[in-house]
């Protein structure tokens, strides 16, 4: 069965302020969706809400995957259900080597490896994991030495983004959310990251790509492009919509939907999207 991430009439608040105001979106395995939109429109809020960040409060609406109510699940349960979020700002965890972290994540997501026999956990061969990790590192041109480095500690912005995608390739989610993974990357890195995402493409893999730039979409060739304004998707289309946005900016859409400029000072302060 093809899984579908179904978001219906979603309303989200953070610290009492409504950021997402009635959003509908359906992402199936096998589909690539892109979300674009001006700063402060709620794109990162959507990403973090989908993954279950405790700060974001869903006040209305539903999110489900394969018919399962995601709102009832903790972030780790959502991950095990098949979701993945590539963070816009990945966190650092000192003293934890990347490979050790990923190995534990692989184990956590593959319950069959935890099966008991004679009271002892069955171990997935370590060599197999190493091989997988090195393969994926090659695709993303991440140096092997990163396996032993502490998670995101001392990584440059670009290295962090690549390692987010590396984690995704190793964990092989069913639905991935990429939150501005291309921001701050040089031209070559954008291409490498896109190749990484494309290496997962297939009927089993769906993605929601949040971006400000058309460049990454040239490589990803999304099936759907959505424009998010003030907490709603106001326009959807195919990849030609992204090209049009790159050329014309957002003003024509804002006028079309009758929305005023989003750049009001009052909204800037409270929205996490503004951190970039």
């Amino acid at each position: 069965m093809t899984g579908e991430l179904a978001i219906k009439n979603l309303h989200v608040q953070i610290e009492g302020k409504e950021i997402i105001r009635g959003l509908d979106l359906y992402v199936k395995q096998g589909e690539i969706h892109a979300i674009m939109g001006p700063n402060g429109s709620g794109k990162s809020t959507l990403a973090l809400t989908l993954m279950g960040h405790p700060k974001y409060q869903v006040t209305q609406g539903t999110i489900s995957y394969k018919g399962q109510d995601l709102l009832a699940l903790s972030p780790d349960e959502r991950a095990r259900a098949g979701l993945f979020l590539a963070f816009q700002y990945p966190f650092e965890v000192s003293g934890v080597p990347l490979s050790r972290f990923l190995l534990q994540a692989v184990k956590a997501r593959a319950p069959e490896t935890k099966a008991q026999s004679n009271g002892r956990p069955v171990r997935r061969p370590l060599g197999q994991f190493r091989k997988l990790l090195h393969e994926k590192m090659e695709i993303l041109k991440v140096d092997k030495s990163f396996a032993g480095r502490y998670l995101n500690e001392g990584f440059s912005g670009g290295e962090k983004k690549r390692v987010e995608v590396l984690q995704m390739l190793v964990l092989q989610p069913e639905i991935a959310i990429l939150d501005e993974t291309d921001s701050g990357l040089d031209i070559d890195s954008v291409k490498i990251v896109a190749q990484g995402v494309n290496s997962l493409r297939g009927p089993e893999f769906g993605a929601l790509v949040i971006t400000h730039y058309q460049r990454i979409l040239n490589y990803l060739k999304p099936d759907f492009v959505h424009v998010m304004v003030k907490g709603r998707l106001v326009k959807s289309g195919g990849s030609e919509l992204a090209e049009e946005l790159e050329e014309r900016g957002y003003d024509w859409i804002l006028q079309e939907v009758g929305a005023a400029s989003t750049e009001s000072a009052e909204e800037k302060g409270a929205d996490p999207d503004e951190r970039s």
Binding site: M51, G52, H53, P54, S74, P75, D76, R78, A79, R80, F84, L85, F87, P90, F91, V93, S94, G95, V96, F101, L102, Q104, A105, A108, R109, Y150, L151, Q167, L171
Partner: peptide
């Protein structure tokens, strides 16, 4: 930090002990 690790499939206590082990590393 906890949320970040949990988003990869680690339970809350696994995430916590991973952070603590890292601290002790």
């Amino acid at each position: 930090q906890i949320f970040y690790l949990m988003s990869r499939g680690l339970s809350e206590s696994e995430a916590l002990s991973m952070i603590v082990l890292g601290f002790m590393e």
